[in-house]
Write a protein that binds this DNA or RNA. Structure first.
Lengths: 224, 224
DNA sequence: CGATTCGTTGAGAGTCGTCAACGGAGGTGG
DNA sequence: CCACCTCCGTTGACGACTCTCAACGAATCG
């Protein structure tokens, strides 16, 4: 466990979970928070292990994934700074539902499930924050299913670019905050499939150089 | 709007949402409940429409689905008796996130979002029930993503059969509560793919006749 | 009994995963 | 500063899987 430095503290306070709490609830959550760091590829926990905490990412990225019985992995979610995960265990059960691995060096805030449950009983703000967080995740996860089932690989990539370039038309660009293999898993693709999807998007004006991606015409990309 | 008959009322009371409420909260929810019926293929609401209610299924089945811009449909969830849907709008927003269609004749209970929000402020039980419901859905939806990404069509069917036959080994049987085309959508498959998956499971002792499915050896099915 | 819907089967095409080889980037150590 | 190494990303070849379209048979409902 480490001390909470200024930048991490700001990230934590701007989290959707904490940002809308009243002063007393906020103070209680900060008091409960438990900072820890992991190195790239460290496993935070495995599916089925007894669960005592949920997490907020302060820096870096974390993979949540499952294994099939052949050992093949499938990502369920990629969590970045400000994201919260495993909070559904507040009401569900006492074992983790998936594996979690640090995709790079990460710092996390851990919150004891029991203490937050208790806090939610006393502080209406905390209960509301939990509901908001759960709703957000549910929405995002349903979006993911719909995208998986409706879109091909190039369409998924186009969709990702369009939601991360910040513009509606004209040219734009995206800087990936992580490795491409992570983006592949996030979109439910093998790394090779992501690579081929980028290639196929060249003809609509998408240029990839390392982690920076140029889009010559956002409107054209929407037609994919 | 119709009167609440005895069987529907029992279904409603046994819902995970209502069953654990205290007497006053339960009474308030029953008072808010608004019963309505739809015929097969009726559309309850469309994605993007202003939302005023969330729903509980009392009888029949409801499809939640999205459209891509070519008009192709993909099911996100199939809801049966006791299931609740669109409750994430309690905290999220004021438009529906997907289309909902009656897969057969259905009766539903509708709950006004605003009034339940208000109730959740006063009654801790209601807030807890919302959290539990959201957590359950989030878990189920994440399971769905993992299954989509890790399993082939025969594996998905086998998994469905194993979780619905109620036994751990030996022979077993499943009676589908709905049409096969609904099961196909639920598993993220075209109806033809479901049919072929059943065919391929014949060699491990799965026999299909109409809606009843015989399994000669459950342990063998687990090896798929 | 006729009509419509549902389910199955076949053929074909498209998409994506896997395996393998190659090239480049970044980091380490000499 | 360079040589080397490892990891990441790309590309090609191949195969498995599943969607689509079409036709046929079965079941259901009036």
């Amino acid at each position: 466990m480490l001390r909470l430095n200024l930048r991490d503290k700001n990230t934590l306070l701007r989290t959707s979970f904490l940002s809308e709490l009243g002063p007393t609830a906020m103070a209680s959550m900060l008091e409960i928070a438990n900072i820890s760091s992991y190195e790239a590829r460290d496993v935070l926990f495995r599916e089925g292990e007894p669960a005592d905490c949920f997490y907020t990412v302060l820096s870096g990225y974390v993979r949540l994934y499952r294994l099939n019985k052949d050992g093949r992995e499938a990502d369920i979610r990629i969590c970045g700074p400000g994201d919260i995960f495993a909070e559904c265990l507040l009401t569900l059960g006492d074992t983790y539902l998936y594996n979690a691995q640090a995709a790079e060096n990460v710092t996390l805030a851990r919150f004891d499930l029991g203490r937050v449950r208790q806090l939610a009983e006393q502080e209406k703000d905390v209960a509301k924050a939990i509901m908001r967080s759960l709703s957000d995740h549910l929405r995002g996860t349903m979006d993911c299913i719909a995208n998986d089932r409706l879109q091909t690989a190039p369409q998924r990539v186009a969709h990702y670019l369009l939601t991360h370039c910040g513009a509606e038309e004209g040219p734009g660009s995206v800087r990936l905050p992580f490795q491409k293999s992570l983006l592949a898993g996030m979109l439910g693709l093998a790394p090779e499939a992501l690579s081929r999807a980028f290639s196929s998007l060249r003809k609509v004006g998408v240029t990839v150089r390392g982690r920076t991606i140029q889009i010559s015409d956002i409107s054209a990309l929407k037609q994919i």
